[in-house]
Every structure is written in C-alpha cells, then in structure tokens.
Design a protein around this nucleic acid. Sequence first.
RNA 1: GCCUUUGUAGCUCAGGGGUAGAGCACUUCCUUGGUAAGGAAGAGGUCCCGGGUUCAAUUCCCGGCAAAGGCUCCA
Length: 647
Amino acid sequence: MSIHVTLPDGSVRTYDQGASAMDVAKSISEGLARNVLSAKVNGEVRDANRPLPGDCTLQLLTWNDPEGKATLWHSSAHVMAEALEALYPGIKFGIGPPIENGFYYDVDFGERSIGDGDFAAIEAKFKEQVSKKLTFDRKEVSKADAITYFTEKGDEYKLELIEGLLDGQITFYTQGNFTDLCRGPHIPDTSGIKAMKVLSLAGAYWRGDEKRKQLTRLYAITFPKQKELEEYLALLEEAKKRDHRKLGKELDLFTFSERVGAGLPLWLPKGAALRERLINFMKTAQEKAGYVQVATPHIGSKALYETSGHWEKYGKDSFQPISTPQEGEQFMLKPMNCPHHCEIFASRPRSYKDLPLRLAEFGTVYRYEQSGELHGLARVRGFTQDDAHLFCRPDQVKEEFMKVIDLVLLVLRALNFETFEVQVSLRDKEDRSKYIGTEENWEKAEQAIIEAAAASGLKTTVEYGEAAFYGPKLDFMIKDALGRRWQLGTIQVDYNLPERFELEYVGSDNGRHRPVMIHRAPFGSLERFIAVIIEHTAGRFPLWLTPEQAIVLPISDKYIDAARQVAGDLKDSDIRASVDERNEKIGRKIRDAELAKTPFMLVVGEKEAAEGSVSVREQGQGDLGTMSPKAFADLVGDRIAKQLGGL
RNA sequence: GCCUUUGUAGCUCAGGGGUAGAGCACUUCCUUGGUAAGGAAGAGGUCCCGGGUUCAAUUCCCGGCAAAGGCUCCA
C-alpha cells in the first residue's frame, strides 16, 4: 500500500503507508529535514514524526512559519517545565502555551517564592535538558489513566483541565523525565532549540479568574539560533527607547505627580500646545463635516447616570459619588459625555429637519482604573475625549456612519498611521445579560455597522463580546512600540440611550419618532492618542504638530541679532521657531537640535547675515542649502498642507 | 486590587550599617568657533514617606505611596 502526498506547490509524491512528514522532508533534502518543526496535514498541525493518515496535503513547517514557531515554543514550554520541576520538586503546573513572542508556563510554586534572581538557574537547567536531545513521545491515554497519573502527582490544575476533556481524546507527551497532559504537536527533538531566555515573571490568576489562586507565570522565549535571541533582545531595547513615557519626559510634554495622584497627567507647556493643535485640527475637520460644539460640566447628578444605565453597570467600579454638604445631593464625576448631550438634545422640540444633529465636545471624563492598570498616558484616570454624538433618523444611520469612517481615516492619514486594524465589536454570542436594550435594536445596530464598514471598503475583523454595553462598535486599533494593541478611534451605534432618555423628534408625518445616536471619537482619548503618536513617530512628530518646527543657530554670538530677525520673520509666517543663543560651537548646536528632533535647523553666519538668508538643515537628512526665510516658510507651508490633506 | 521588580542630584545610573558618587544637564569664566559633543571652575541631595532593629539606618526589617512588567493568549 502506498499513499499520495500533495505538497504546497501542487506536486504529488508517493510514499509507503506509515510514512511520516519527517520521511517526506528527508526525501526532499537533509537540510529541510533538519529544519522541520512540525507539519500541517490536511490543514491540521501535527507532530512531524507521526505517520501520515493516508492520502493527504502536507505542508512542512519550519521556523519561518508562524505554526512552526508556535510548535518550537510550545515544546520549549515543556522543557522549561521539566527544568523547573528538577529545580523545585513538588511544584504544580497550570498551562504553558506558546504566545505571540515566546511562551509561558503558569506554575504553582507552593510556599516557595521565585524572583528574577532565579532566572539564570532556570536557563542553565533548561540548556542542560535541551543538550540531551530529548524527543517528545506522544501517547494516547484513557481519561481514567490520565486522572490516576495526575492524582498521584498531586497536580489539581491538570486534573481540572482533564475534567473538561472527552475520554478518548486525551494525549500525554513525554520528554526526558517529564510527562505532561498535552494535545501537541511538538518538535521532533530538542536539538532545534539553541537559545533560551526567561524574560519576565508575573502573577496570573488560574484560568484568568481573579477569585481563584494566583499562579506564577514565567515568560520565556527560545530561538533556533543564538544570534536571533540577541537580535530579539536588541529589538526590545529599541522599543524601550520609543516608549512614550520616556520620550514624553525628554520632550517636555507631560509629567505625573504623586501629590496630584496616579493616572492624572499634567500637561507641560509644549505638550499642552501640541494637544491644542490636535484639538484645533479636529475642530476644523468637524466644522467642515457639519458638527456644532457644545460644552458641559465635569460632574452630573447621580440620577443622570441612573437614567443612562451607567450607574447600574459601572457604579460600583467608578469613582464614588460626591455629595453636597447641606442637602446631601449626589453627583458623579462624569465618566462619559453622552448623557449630558442627550439632555442638550432634549432641551427643546426637534424636527426631522434638524437631523442629523451633531454635538461635539472635547469632554474630560474620569474613570476609575485599578492602580495596576495605569500605564503612562495610555491608561489614565482622567482624560479628554474628542467626543461627539450624532442624533439622526433611522434612515440616516448608514450614511452618517460612513461619514464618520471618512473622518477617522482623514485623522489617521494626517498622522501617518498607515497600518491599523479595524474591529467590528459585537455582543457576546452566549452571555447577553451584560447588555441593555432590546434584541431588535441590537440586531439593527449590528447590521448598520457591518453594512457601513463594508460599504466603506474597510477590511475588518469581527470580535464577539467586545461591544459596549449599550451598543456595538467599530474600533480602530494601533500597535505601540512594544507590539501591544491599543484601541484608538471608536464609532458606536446606540438605540438604547435615546430610549432611556425618551428622546424624540417630530417627523414629516407630524408623529413622534425616536432618533438613533452615534457615539464617535476619532482620537478616542487625546492622552492615549498622543501616547501612540509618540511611539509611532519615535518623537518625530508630523511637521504641523511638532512643538518646535525650526531652530535658528547663529554661528557665533556676533550673529545673534541676525538670528533673532530670522526667528521673528518665521513667527510672522506662523512657523514655530526659536534661537539657540548659547555660547557653543555650531557643531554642538546642531547635535543638540538633532537629538531634540527639531525638524529644521537654520544656520546663520557671516554670509547669511550679510545677504539675509538662512542655511537650512533638515533633521535626519542633512544640509538642504541656502535660501531666503520666505522660501523656507513656503517649504514648511507646502509640507504641512500635504500632511493635512487640504484641511 | 493581586504577583514580581524598582525608588539615591533636573536626567541616566553606580554605591553601601559610620563625611553621598559618576556622566549628562545647570551656573560662571575662558574661547567667537561653518553643519552631530571646545576648555576650566562651581553649585546642586529629607538617598520616596512612616515606623522598627541598632551606639549609629540612605543601606537591614515591617507598613505605606509611586513606577515598571504581567494578571487577554486555555491541555
């Protein structure tokens, strides 16, 4: 009997019954066989040395395939577990999956406490195990046997996992002295692992549940080459340099104060000015799109949030109400602007002719975040949204939604964000208790979003369970320097708040109708948005946004007056410029301006002072030659116009 | 909130039971220099806060506060 194996290039090869993916690899080349980590057989990732099931399609997986990497890392997790068990007998294991960059294993160390001082020993033991060229042996076991094994071992976590599995589908893998409950697949043997590093350690609740025991999670990563590990560590270092918390300090944009409180950013003059420019940019774009600005207070009566449903949903987990001293009235720091805006809509009768009504406000809101969740500007307790609420007729929803998508794309383009993900966030498929509103309205809202996104030609992914409690969302996500994903802009369709606030307009039929609300914030929060811009640009902001667009550098203090004249001329052309009047050589001034990431340096010496010109140098680019201040101003103006896309 | 780590000059960090250290930044002086660091001198600290141990604590212990990584990746 022989079997036919179809390879990715479409070629078909014939092998004896019982041949493995590894046999196929060997028949192609020894080099390939050495690099095979696992194999995709009929779309399923399996051990490379398992016999093929018969005629099949086969893709050999190596380090160059995401699944290949995952296999190596998963196997590495087993080896790390073995190393840990050898070092710390009696410990218990949770789960140990591969992740985006490496793998982790959750371990119950019992009374023992592990710190990063223990990493070296773990790495050494790991290398010792790996050098034995251990193989991973797969074994199918009955549920009863599996339970017996881990009962004897005393590992209640594995037992709990087994409980959730079906008899007949349980497999163990053994390498060296370590046997683990595992679906697999694994790499042929450990010789492919050449470099390993324990990266960090963290507490992680068993099964992600805060109420259950906290295990110790060890993050680590392995590579088939030592050099790749070094490159990866260098990459992490590089990412640290882009960290917005570090750059924000270096660029004098913002700070935090213990005395003011955690998660409450203080904007320094340069940062505040940058924020202001973002706000003005958005205001201009919104005015063109038919929005009107409103302004509302930072607090609102508790009753307002009882009406909106926020109190019931978030009351316990938000800043608690503040009370008036005499009457004991209760007010909340506002966590959202929408209830206030609903009341503005309700302040007088509305006609269908008034719709859509687009109320915009740069509203500062306050949300309690657990102390451990705070993160620079990206997660804070007080932040400003570029918020707006569009009240429209049901027949206008799709068009309005699409207009908002256009606005978000305009913003992303002006800030050079080329890569972002768009996520359609819908309700949890099973648990609907988290949401308010009728099934019918949710259906309508979800449909509206899906259709509008499709009509705008956006590539989207759908996530269930990510919707807001009052409606589905379209979220724009960006990755930061460390690869963490942040939600920026968001657009949400909401049929519920208009109902809770009993909002109405008079239709052309002279009857009363309920408007639909669209919540939207292209930046999301200004704080988080600025954090992401900082990391995305490594502090080299777009010219229109940057705090200082040009710095004038006199060659010596004989030319300070000429330099001041130039700076004055530039100011008249609305260019932000200052003069470096320090008693330093030109080389030093240039170096400092380069490091400060000032986009343009204008050198003024004897020649320039005499002819009223400037010698222009662009940050990171070098000398652009001599020109008049006017010509330079035009150059800056042109670049900005291009960036802003005509706004 | 919980786990691990950290907190020393404006910044980055070294140190260590008994006068507190470096580099950069800052101030003053010298230098007037043409596209990435000119020279010299000087000033600068509640060693996060509170308690304990000790003859003596910035250092060791306990408790706070703040910051970092994680608690979402499901055999």
